[in-house]
Lab assay of single mutants.
Amino acid sequence: SKWSPSQVVDWMKGLDDCLQQYIKNFEREKISGDQLLRITHQELEDLGVSRIGHQELILEAVD
């Protein structure tokens, strides 16, 4: 995926409302499409996504 960080942010805006709070962290870390495809629970935790349910929603959406 050749998504830029801004495309990742646009994609996140289409996800569940409960995930919108994390967008600024993804933006700050400039998460690209390639990074998103390989993202782990630990990396999500580092991005402030501490709730497992929220991590799962992001990982499922990526899949």
Rank of each mutant, 00 (worst) to 15 (best):
E29G: 13
D10E: 15
S32H: 07
G14C: 07
D34W: 10
R28G: 08
L36A: 00
K13T: 08
D34V: 10
Q7I: 03
D16T: 04
Q21V: 12
R38V: 07
G48D: 04
T40C: 06
I39C: 06
D17K: 09
E45P: 02
I52E: 13
D46P: 02
R38N: 11
R51F: 14
E56F: 07
D10H: 09
S50T: 15
V9D: 04
W11F: 07
I58W: 03
I39M: 14
I31N: 03
I52R: 15
Q55R: 15
L15W: 08
K2I: 12
K2Y: 14
Q35P: 01
I31M: 07
L47A: 03
S50L: 12
Q35Y: 07
G48L: 00
Q42S: 11
W11L: 01
L57A: 11
G48Q: 03
D17F: 09
G33V: 06
F26D: 01
H41R: 15
V49W: 01
I31A: 01
L57M: 15
D46S: 13
V49K: 00
S1W: 09
E60H: 11
I58T: 03
K2M: 11
S4G: 11
E45N: 14
S32I: 05
I58V: 07
S6A: 15
D34R: 12
L59I: 08
K13H: 11
R28L: 10
N25S: 13
L57W: 00
E60C: 09
V8S: 03
H41D: 09
R51D: 15
S6C: 09
I39E: 04
G14Y: 00
I31F: 05
W11Q: 03
C18Q: 11
V9F: 03
D34K: 13
L57Y: 05
W3R: 05
Q20D: 08
V8C: 03
Y22P: 03
L44Q: 00
V49D: 02
D16L: 03
L36K: 02
L36N: 01
F26S: 02
Q7N: 07
K2E: 08
E43I: 06
E60V: 06
G53L: 12
N25A: 14
W3I: 13
S6M: 13
V8R: 01
S4I: 05
R51I: 15
D16Q: 08
Q20L: 11
K13F: 07
E29L: 09
L15H: 02
W11D: 04
I39G: 03
I52D: 11
G53N: 15
T40N: 09
K2C: 12
L59V: 05
D63Q: 13
E29C: 12
Q7M: 11
E60K: 14
E56Q: 14
Q21W: 00
E56K: 15
L37I: 10
H54W: 00
V8N: 00
S4H: 07
E29R: 14
Y22E: 03
W11K: 05
C18M: 06
Q7G: 06
N25V: 13
Q7F: 03
S6R: 13
S1M: 12
E60L: 07
I39A: 06
G14R: 08
G53D: 15
I52V: 14
S4D: 14
M12N: 00
L47V: 06
W3L: 08
H54F: 01
C18R: 07
M12Y: 07
D63N: 14
V62G: 02
V9A: 12
Q35C: 07
D34N: 12
S4P: 06
S1T: 09
V8W: 00
W3N: 05
H54A: 03
D63Y: 12
I31H: 03
S32Y: 08
I23A: 14
P5F: 10
L59E: 04
S6Q: 14
G48F: 00
Q35T: 11
D10N: 12
G33K: 06
E29Y: 11
I23T: 12
D10R: 10
V9M: 10
C18I: 06
Q55P: 04
L19E: 03
S4F: 04
I52Q: 12
E43N: 11
L47T: 02
L37N: 10
L36I: 07
E27K: 10
E45L: 13
Y22R: 03
L59A: 04
E43Q: 15
L37G: 10
L44E: 02
L15V: 06
W3H: 02
G53K: 15
G14T: 15
S50V: 11
V8Q: 00
P5M: 07
S1F: 11
G53V: 12
S50P: 07
V49R: 00
L37W: 07
E29D: 12
Q55G: 00
D46K: 15
L36P: 00
I23Q: 07
Q7S: 06
D46H: 14
W3V: 04
L57T: 06
T40A: 05
Q21S: 11
Q21P: 15
S32V: 06
E27P: 03
S1A: 09
G53E: 15
E43R: 14
V49M: 07
I31Q: 01
L36T: 01
E27D: 08
L15Q: 10
S32L: 03
D46N: 14
H54D: 11
F26A: 02
V49T: 01
G53T: 15
S1R: 08
P5H: 12
L37E: 09
V9W: 01
E60I: 05
P5E: 07
M12H: 02
H41M: 11
Q7P: 04
Q42D: 07
Q55F: 00
I52Y: 12
C18H: 05
K30F: 07
L57C: 06
Q42C: 06
E27L: 09
I31S: 02
R38Q: 10
D17T: 11
M12F: 12
R28H: 11
W3S: 05
I39F: 08
G33E: 01
D34F: 08
D63P: 02
D34M: 11
K13C: 07
F26I: 07
K30M: 11
V62M: 05
Q20N: 11
K30N: 12
Q20F: 09
Y22H: 05
G33M: 08
D46E: 14
M12W: 05
G53R: 15
Q21A: 11
F26Y: 01
D63G: 15
V49A: 02
R51H: 15
N25Y: 13
V9I: 13
P5R: 05
V62T: 05
S32N: 15
G14M: 06
R51Q: 15
C18D: 14
D17L: 06
M12I: 10
I23S: 08
Q42R: 14
S1P: 04
W11V: 03
F26E: 02
Q42F: 04
